Structures are given as structure tokens and as C-alpha cells.
Amino acid sequence: MNIRAALVAGLLAISGCTTTGLGNTKVGSAAGALAGRITGDDGGSGKVAAAIIAEMNGGLVGGQIGAGMDERDRRIALEAEYRALEHTQSGQPVTWKSDRSGLYGTVVAAQPYRVGSQDCRQYSHTVFASGQSRNARGTACRNADGSWTPLT
């Protein structure tokens, strides 16, 4: 593991423990282990990142706000959703931009809360295209492996 991947894994492990204030080190460690993979430090395979993104079941961009996005743009947007949910403080925006299509967006997650044994967060995603914005709101809950599943 290179130094960058170790640093990201360590930071995510810590944030996984403190994001909800519940001290769940098992979930924090799982999220930390996945961190390098979602950021592209998994040796280039991208298989785990693809699995995490698949667990998000399309996220908010799987709906109307993602209409017209190609697969690459959708993945960039979903990765931003994951970063916002997994390790960004409440109210702090996570931005993304496609160099190819010119699409860009912002994801903002709210304060985490507990539902049963799962940590959940409400979040919003705004996509900007051709001077127009589209916004969607939703809720996602964290799975034991560190992935997030949107509630329907």
C-alpha cells in the first residue's frame, strides 16, 4: 500500500468512527479499507469501486437529475455522493466536474443519525448542465461493508 492510500485509509477509518459519534470501529475500518479502492488506489482494477457504486443502486443521479449522463459522468457523480455520505461533515459540499461533457454538481449530506443498527444520512445532489440545475434529495444508510444504500 502506498503512503497516499495508507493516509486516506487511516483518515477514513477515523472519520468512520467519529462521523456519527457512535464509535463503530468495525464500520470505520471497513470504510477505510475501501477508501483506496474508491479513490483509485486499488492497483487499477476498479472492481471494488464498481461494487461500491453498484451498492448505491444509482444513487440520486440514477433518477431524473441524471438523465442524459453517460456512464463515466454517472460514476463521477456517484463517487461524489459516496464521499459526501462517508466522510464529509454535515453541510459541507462535495463537488465534481466532468472534463468531457461539462456537467458538474454538488452533493451535500446532513447530520448522520441512527435507524436500528444502521447509520443513515439525508443528502441532496444538484447537477448543472447547460445553465440549468436539477436537484434531488434522498436518504442513504451505511452497510456493514462501508457501502451506502439509498432508501426508496
Results as ranks from 00 to 15, higher is better:
Ala144Gly: 03
Tyr123Lys: 01
Ser117Ile: 08
Ala144Met: 08
Glu81Phe: 12
Glu71Arg: 02
Val61Ser: 08
Thr152Tyr: 05
Asp41Cys: 08
Glu55His: 15
Ala77Trp: 04
Ser124Trp: 01
Gln64Cys: 01
Gly131Phe: 07
Ser29Glu: 09
Ala129Thr: 09
Lys47Asp: 15
Ser98Asp: 11
Ser133Ile: 00
Ser117Trp: 01
Ile14Lys: 11
Arg142Thr: 09
Ser98Arg: 07
Thr25Met: 03
Gln111Asn: 08
Gly23Met: 12
Val127Phe: 01
Met56Trp: 00
Arg75Asp: 07
Met56Cys: 01
Thr88Trp: 03
Asp145Ile: 06
Gly105Phe: 00
Met69Tyr: 02
Ala140Ile: 05
Ala35Asp: 11
Ala109Gly: 11
Ala50Met: 02
Ser29Met: 13
Tyr113Met: 02
Leu12Asp: 15
Gly62Gln: 05
Arg74His: 01
Gln89Gly: 15
Arg4Glu: 13
Ile38Asn: 09
Gly91Phe: 06
His87Trp: 09
Cys141Phe: 03
Ala35Cys: 14
Asp70Ser: 04
Asn57Lys: 15
Lys97Met: 02
Gly23Trp: 12
Cys141Ala: 04
Ser98Ile: 08
Gly32Ser: 13
Gly102Pro: 04
Asn57Trp: 06
Gln118Leu: 11
Ala129Pro: 01
Gly21Val: 05
Ile14Glu: 11
Gly40Ala: 04
Tyr123Arg: 01
Asp99Tyr: 04
Gln122Asp: 14
Asp99His: 05
Arg83Glu: 14
Arg37His: 15
Thr106Trp: 03
Gly116Glu: 10
Gly28Lys: 09
Ala51Val: 00
Ile76Ala: 04
Gln64Phe: 10
Gly16Phe: 12
Thr95Ile: 06
Ile65Ser: 06
Gly138Val: 08
Leu78Pro: 03
Tyr123Leu: 02
Ala33Leu: 13
Lys97His: 06
Val108His: 00
Lys26Ala: 14
Cys120Ile: 05
Gly23Ser: 14
Ala80Glu: 12
Val127Pro: 02
Ser101Val: 03
Pro150Val: 10
Ala144Val: 12
Gly28Thr: 12
Asp119Lys: 02
Asp42Met: 14
Lys47Glu: 15
Arg121Asn: 00
Arg100Gln: 06
Gly138Ile: 04
Ala33His: 10
Ala84Leu: 13
Arg37Gln: 14
Thr39Asn: 13
Thr88Gln: 11
Leu11Ser: 15
Arg72Phe: 05
Gly91Ser: 09
Ala5Lys: 07
Ala80Asn: 10
Gly66Ala: 04
Gly68Ala: 12
Trp148Asn: 02
Gly10Pro: 06
His87Gln: 12
Ala33Glu: 13
Ser147Pro: 13
